[in-house]
Every structure is written in structure tokens, then in C-alpha cells.
Nucleic acid binder design. Structure first.
Lengths: 223, 223
DNA sequence: GCGAATCTTCACGGTTTCTTAACGGCTCCT
DNA sequence: AGGAGCCGTTAAGAAACCGTGAAGATTCGC
């Protein structure tokens, strides 16, 4: 059975969605603010999330980023008609779709079906482990030669993207877009600085990298 | 580079999209009706399709079904505000998203980025594999006789075009246009230099190519 | 508020990649 | 046989790119 988490501060909407979705054999959990919404997602591991952007306690994009750190669950955003800017920000933060309020239930259901259909069958949690390195993405732990390594938030985001795409080349544009946002896709400096820091912390010989490889002119690759 | 096919019967919209998308480094092809739209999708193999529902010759859902028969390319639907019913039908037919006319360019671009980003996992990119060669376009990996081969950005672009059109002749003009841009379509030198480099890196006997074949006076072909 | 950690920005030297030109071999045509 | 055009090969200078250290600016925790 498909599991849905609904995050909305309007109780009426939560109730309406719960009734409609339950009637169509979805399993529904609701939350009234961002913090409890994140908790619900972590607890329920839903197949899809419906998220209202106008939450009382935190910005909607913060919720999205919080989820995208460890999960690829589809997120459908609800927003008032005027928040054009917020919609764009939400999609760039990693939302999969949005519906403007007031919305037709038929439309929401169609989008829900589309989102679930698209979803990739849940992927395994990446854990890298070899003689020298141990990277546990879910637990946010990294150690090199047996010693725990502390990474800053930015370093971690960068490493996580590379690890999730291990073996594949990740382009500079994509890294910059996913870590710094859509307006920073030309700041190649940032990549150089942070790749150097990651290598200093992770590589046995930072000057001759074994894991964090450069593909000149294109991007980086974790192997 | 991301390739987009736009299908809309309003020439003004086609033109506006072409200009905006080209400026953002998308590669754009346009079609004015459903039939030529389907042909364009089959020919161009775009990364994403923008489809107007109000086409003169056939219903938009027919176009979607026609594509979904053999491809999972993301489809973003354009529709007038009133066609609520048609939107639902389009999403159920396999469309991935829709935007109501009149639309904001920012919103469309954000949805485009979201659609392309989502599509990557499910999109099966060509992988060439035989005794001697292994080419994984998605991961940007090439190996010859078991050894990993490093390619420069230009070498990659060239090889990728040939691989995507494997078996077919690709003209010199098209290669030059797609790799170096519209102002370089006479620099046949570039092709010779880079084909030689690719052969040196990929062919078992570079002087007698098995995969990267020359069609004198016309172009090259990957087999 | 204050100190520490983190992020942004800059400049320099070394390396890789791109561009360009020249030369010889080959095929086809006259 | 000779010439013209096309192709493959090589090499060298120019341009772009990368790694690095370090110095402000900003944020965060106390």
C-alpha cells in the first residue's frame, strides 16, 4: 500500500486529504509543521510527501533540503497562487512537483500517481568501505585510516553527491548547482577549494588522489 | 548538453522558447503539430519534451501515448487555464508535469530542470560493450582492452555524438556544429586531429580502425 | 559580545587541453 | 603521369584549467 505523509498547517486541508486519500487506499500520516513533518518522514518512510510551503515554523525549502539530504522520496509542494518565486525555489531545492491552492482533488491525485509511478525503487544506502576509507552516508560518518574525520556541512554535501554517484563523472555544473544552488554554476573556484579540503582530509596522499579524481574541464569522480 | 523538443502550433511561443532555452545552453528543436513532433522526438532523442495540448492535428494525449510506447523521456505539458480535465488526462497518459498558459519563463525553466534531474536514474543511456571496448555514456567511462581511458572534454563530445548515432553516418558539418558551434563548420582540421586522438586511445590498431570509420568526403561513423 | 569554525575570494605556478600549421600518403580525375 | 583534394599524423605555442595557500568576511556557539 502506498504511504503518504501530508505536512500542512491548515487542519482542514489535512483532514480533507486524509479522507480522500484513505478512501483510495493510501496510508496517510499528517503533520502540522516542518519539524514534526521531518520527524514523520524519517519515521514513516513514505512513498511520497505532500508539503505545504506556508508552514509556521520554517521555510518549505528547508524541509525539502532536510529530506533530500538522505532520501529521494518524491515531494509534491502545495502553495498559494502568488508564491511564484517560492515555487521555483522549491523545485530547485529538490521538490518534484507542485500544485497551487486552491487545488482540485482530481489533479492532486493525478500528480500523486505520476510521482509514485516515476519514483525509483528505493536504493540501498551507500556505504563505502575499503582499506583506507569508511564512508557511511546514512550515519554521516567518515573515517580515514581508522581515524574519525570531521567534515563541514559543505564538504559533506559535496562528498555525498560524489559518493551517491560513485564511479560516475559528476559535472562541475551539477555539483555547484546541487551544493550552492542554481545561481552559482560558474563559481569553479569553490569546487577547487573544497575538493582540495576533502582530499586533505580523506586521501592518503592528497597530491596524488586515489578516490577523488579530477576530470579536467568536465568534473569529478569518486571511485 | 541538454536537448529539448518543443511542440506547439503557436509560432510565437516556439520562437520565445527557442530563444530563452538556447540562451541557457539547451539544444532546441521545434515542431508545429503532433505528427512532426513525434517525428522530431524519434529523430532527436531529446532529454525532455515540451508539448502544447492544443495542437491542430491530433489530441495531446495521443502524442504522449505515442511517445510512451518506446521512451520514458520526460514530457512537460502546456495547456490553457480552463482545460483542467485535459491536464488530468495528460498526466494519466504519462506526462510528467504541466504548466498553464500564460506561463512565466522562470517557472517553466525550473520545471524543466526538475524534469531533467528526475529523469537521470530511469533514463537508460547507451552502453557499448564488446570484446575490446566499453563505453558508458551516463557514467562517462571508457575502457579499451580492460584499461580505463581518459578522454578530454572535446574528445568526449565527439565520441558521444558518434555513439548516440551508432551505425549511422554523421556528417562533418554536423559534428563540427555540435561540438565546436555554428561558426566552425569548415574547420575540417579539428575533426582529423580529434578523430586521430580518439583512435589512438580506443582502437586496437589505430592505423586500421574497426570502430571509428571514415566516410571520405562525408563524415564519420561508429560501428 | 567574543572566539572559533566555516565560507568566500583572490592570486600564482604548474599542468592539461585546444588551436593552428605543416608534411606526407592516398585516391581519383584528367 | 601528374595534379588536386582529402585524410592522418605530429608538434609547438596559446589558452584554459587545476591545485594551493592565505587572507578577509560571515556565521555559529557560548
Amino acid at each position: 500500500m502506498t504511504k503518504v505523509v501530508v505536512i500542512d498547517d491548515e487542519a482542514a486541508i489535512c483532514r480533507a486529504l486524509r479522507i480522500n486519500l484513505t478512501a483510495r487506499d493510501y496510508q496517510v500520516a499528517t503533520a502540522g509543521d516542518g519539524a514534526s513533518g521531518l520527524a514523520a518522514i524519517a519515521r514513516e518512510r513514505p512513498d511520497v510527501v505532500i508539503l505545504d510551503l506556508g508552514l509556521p515554523d520554517m521555510d518549505g525549502t528547508e524541509v525539502i533540503k532536510g529530506v533530500r539530504g538522505w532520501s529521494t522520496t518524491p515531494i509534491i509542494v502545495l502553495s498559494a497562487r502568488e508564491q511564484e518565486q517560492a515555487k521555483v525555489a522549491a523545485l530547485d531545492a529538490g521538490a518534484d512537483d507542485y500544485v497551487t491552492k486552491p487545488f482540485g482533488m482530481d489533479e492532486l491525485l493525478a500528480r500523486l500517481r505520476a510521482a509514485v509511478r516515476r519514483a525509483v525503487p528505493s536504493d540501498e544506502q551507500p556505504v563505502i568501505s575499503n582499506d583506507h576509507l569508511l564512508i557511511d552516508v546514512a550515519a554521516r560518518r567518515v573515517s580515514a585510516s581508522g581515524n574519525d574525520v570531521r567534515l563541514t556541512p559543505t564538504e559533506w554535501q559535496l562528498l555525498e553527491i560524489l559518493v551517491r554517484n560513485r564511479g560516475r563523472l559528476v559535472t562541475q555544473r551539477q555539483l555547484l548547482h546541487d551544493v550552492w544552488g542554481p545561481n552559482y554554476t560558474t563559481e569553479l573556484n569553490y569546487l577547487r577549494v573544497y575538493m582540495a579540503q576533502l582530499r586533505r582530509k580523506l586521501e592518503p596522499d592528497p597530491a596524488r588522489p586515489r578516490y577523488l579524481l579530477t576530470e579536467p574541464g568536465m568534473g569529478y569522480r569518486f571511485t
